[in-house]
């Protein structure tokens, strides 16, 4: 049985959820770039959650939690996205086939570990990956994984495993598609609202979130021992969360920079262009932090927690003033 969502176009993206959201809204008649999808849903963030452990290390996130982008976009465009989870894996696969047979483009949440087309070394047990299914040929599902340059194929059994992986953030077979999109215009008002929300998240009062989370993490890093294998794995973990897992810290800053630049072409928002440049520079500093850490992990520089902590503090300072200024200029 062959099925295909006619006219669907795969686009390479930096991050899975914003890529999926952008490609999905575009397909259903609201053309939007990944950067715009990311910015309009106010997805940029920072969170340091020491009580959530990933292979023994705290969760450090540089964006809002899963489904935030989809929900944010659906709100911005007055649309409704239908979300469905399943108890029975077979029912979940049948439902997917049924939707594909209707010519629909369907979004899925999956684990990364069980997707065979992922590079071996990148396959960790991470359950909040997003991808689109745009068709089926025989037993192979045609997959638009936005972090891949080209569309992929995945056998039914593998896809089922990936959709029904268990553990933290278990996808439970989640599938989604928009039922209705009532607005397709990107207005300056929408952009302003989204930016204000992001500045609130970044400058908010909770000590684990936003720039305060960065400072908290800096304190933790400063307290690491210098001669410990655990310390090296800890700082390596920070960078891995930053650079490898779903684009990461620097990547998200560049992505938000792209959003600010795109938004600056809207009436009354031309001042955002400067902010785009400023944020790109901050992204470069995140990369410098990653580089300094990697050199310590490789043993090229001696492990120095205080240096890394200071870099994190400097980043927190830079982002504090950045978001304060940004808030003033859009308010």
């Amino acid at each position: 049985m062959n099925m295909l969502a006619e006219g669907f176009q795969h686009r390479h993206a930096a991050h899975c959820e914003s890529g999926v959201a952008a490609n999905m809204f575009t397909y259903y008649g609201t053309p939007i770039s990944e950067a715009m999808a990311f910015g309009l849903s106010s997805a940029l963030s920072f969170a340091y959650l020491p009580f959530v452990k990933i292979t023994g290390f705290p969760l450090i996130s540089y964006r809002m939690p899963p489904r935030f982008i989809l929900k944010g976009l659906s709100k911005a465009f007055h649309s409704r996205i239908h979300f469905e989870t399943f108890r029975d894996p077979q029912a979940g696969m049948q439902r997917l086939d049924q939707l594909l047979a209707q010519g629909k483009l369907v979004g899925l949440q999956t684990s990364v570990y069980w997707l065979p087309y992922f590079p071996e070394d990148m396959r960790f047990h991470f359950n909040a990956h997003n991808l689109l299914v745009f068709g089926k040929e025989g037993d192979d599902y045609l997959i638009s994984d936005p972090v891949g340059e080209e569309p992929q194929r995945c056998a039914g059994a593998d896809l089922q495993r990936a959709r029904f992986a268990k553990g933290a953030l278990a996808p439970k077979g989640l599938l989604y598609y928009p039922e209705q999109i009532r607005r397709s215009e990107i207005s300056p008002h929408l952009v302003r609202k989204a930016i204000i929300k992001t500045t609130r998240i970044m400058l908010g009062p909770i000590p684990l979130i936003g720039v305060r989370g960065m400072r908290m993490l800096a304190r933790k890093v400063a307290s690491l021992k210098t001669d410990d294998d655990y310390s090296l794995n800890y700082v390596g973990h920070i960078v891995r969360m930053q650079e490898e897992i779903g684009t990461g810290g620097a990547g998200f800053r560049f992505l938000y920079g792209a959003f600010l630049q795109e938004a600056s072409s809207l009436p009354g928002l031309s001042m955002l262009a400067d902010y785009a440049d400023r944020l790109m520079t901050i992204g470069d500093e995140w990369r410098a932090f990653a580089l300094a850490t990697a050199r310590m992990v490789k043993g090229r520089d001696p492990m120095n927690p205080e240096t890394l902590a200071n870099q994190l503090r400097a980043l927190a300072d830079r982002e504090t003033s950045f978001f304060r200024d940004l808030k003033k200029v859009v308010a």
């Binding site: 292979t55 390596g236 891995r240 650079e243 490898e244 990653a290 990697a294 992990v297």
Partner: peptide
């Protein structure tokens, strides 16, 4: 190389 270093570390 930075990405590679930390992924291989894990």
């Amino acid at each position: 190389e930075v990405d590679e270093t930390v992924t291989l570390q894990a």
